[in-house]
Design a protein around this nucleic acid. Structure first.
Lengths: 130, 130
DNA sequence: TGATAATATGAGTTGAGGCTCATATGAATA
DNA sequence: TATTCATATGAGCCTCAACTCATATTATCA
């Protein structure tokens, strides 16, 4: 019962979810997303990322490690520097697709970021409990 | 300096990130991903999701709310039931694309889920500190 | 209208993860 | 080889979010 696989075409099976979830978790952190976008299509040393983001060196190192272990970036030593690069730029295309989907289905960024609502248009009328 | 926008074609700007991040965070939780995949292309009442996932009613309600506020699902009352549906099935296509990308760039699911490594092939040789 | 079923909410607890500090490691250079 | 630069690591702190419990809300039906 815990597998929750639905044999509907277009649906994602258990193994798919197993692969997707850690990747999505890695991407679902604002500083990591920033770092990934900073890298863009170029290979850059950690120092560049630190300067571009304004984050602490230790923090950048931490996030780069998560991105690396999630399989999004690879490293390459060049002299004293370690360069970080996107494993494959096609990833940006996929993120663009998701962004476009969100733009098409969310009225505004503000609403997307900070939304409070109830299903079925019910209003918030709950009192305090004793 | 904090915007971290890189004028490289194919890169994601600050506003794109702002829209992407809450969506990715919503998807980057295993139970939520399961629930979303359980819904698939069908509209289903909460009871169905509870049964399919084996999660607590309160917990399912909590996650469905997050998915709803993130703009992934919408609700529709039918008698005593509230049906949850994917806002748009194209989302599944995008998730499939991401899954395919991961399959192509990650050697195995195990490695993706539980990876320990160091950049540039360095070995773990750090002792305890005093 | 009272009972029941379906679902949502708020408060509280707990664990995971993001951040920082101190420090280790490895490469380059004097 | 001593120093400096670039980067990584481990431990600890602290916040946030996932989960549970108790309960409220809404709809249906007897």
């Amino acid at each position: 019962m815990n597998n929750c696989t639905c044999p509907v075409p277009g649906t994602l099976e258990h193994d798919d979810q197993k692969r997707l979830f850690p990747a999505l978790r890695a991407l679902g952190e604002p500083n990591r997303l920033r770092i990934l976008c900073c890298l863009g299509l170029e290979c850059r040393p950690v120092t560049d990322v630190i300067e571009a983001t304004g984050l602490e060196q230790t923090n950048v190192s931490f996030h780069l490690r998560v991105l690396r272990e999630a399989g999004f970036v690879r490293t390459e030593r060049r002299g004293p520097f370690i360069y970080y690069c996107l494993v494959d730029s096609e990833l940006l295309r996929i993120l663009h697709d998701l962004k476009d989907w969100l733009s098409a289905h969310q009225p505004s960024v503000e609403r997307a970021v900070n939304q409070r609502s109830r299903p079925d248009g019910r209003k918030l009328t709950i009192g305090t409990r004793g």
